[in-house]
Simulated assay, not measured.
Amino acid sequence: MRRTTLILLAALALGACAKKTERVTFDGVYFPLKSKKASDDRQDFVVTVRKAEQNLELAREAGRYEGTRYCLQNFGTSEIDWSQGPDAEDGTVMLSGGSLTFRGRCALW
């Protein structure tokens, strides 16, 4: 039993290392990113950038990257119509609980 537990822990540790090397950083800063559909229409999406307080400017770029990645993976386009995007004025983008949230729609032509 103990040997099995040690093997599982080692496998988990190696798996975590592999994921860390695949992380995308912005000027050396890592932001945990998440994108998901915002409604039944998958073109509408929400991006969350955690730990944005590290560097707000870089966090905005991380959000732009994640939105672009979402649209490319789901629709093959990098065109986005942002309703609350990374280029919004500072007063309209709020840091909440250390996270930034952006909303957009993948533009299909």
Rank of each mutant, 00 (worst) to 15 (best):
T5D: 13
A10P: 02
A13Y: 15
A13K: 08
C17M: 07
K19E: 07
V29E: 13
Y30M: 04
F31T: 00
P32D: 11
K34F: 10
K36A: 13
K36C: 04
D40V: 02
D40E: 14
D40T: 02
Q43F: 04
D44N: 15
V46D: 15
V47I: 05
V49Q: 07
R50Y: 04
K51V: 08
A52S: 06
A52Y: 03
E53G: 06
Q54N: 02
Q54G: 06
N55M: 06
N55W: 01
E57M: 13
E57T: 12
L58A: 04
A59W: 02
A62F: 12
G63D: 09
G67R: 02
Y70H: 01
Y70Q: 00
C71A: 03
L72Y: 03
Q73S: 03
Q73K: 09
N74L: 12
G76Y: 01
T77E: 02
E79N: 12
E79R: 03
I80W: 00
I80G: 05
D81L: 07
S83L: 05
G85E: 01
E89R: 10
G91L: 08
G91S: 10
M94L: 15
G97Q: 07
L100H: 13
F102E: 04
L108H: 06
W109Q: 14
W109V: 10
W109H: 14
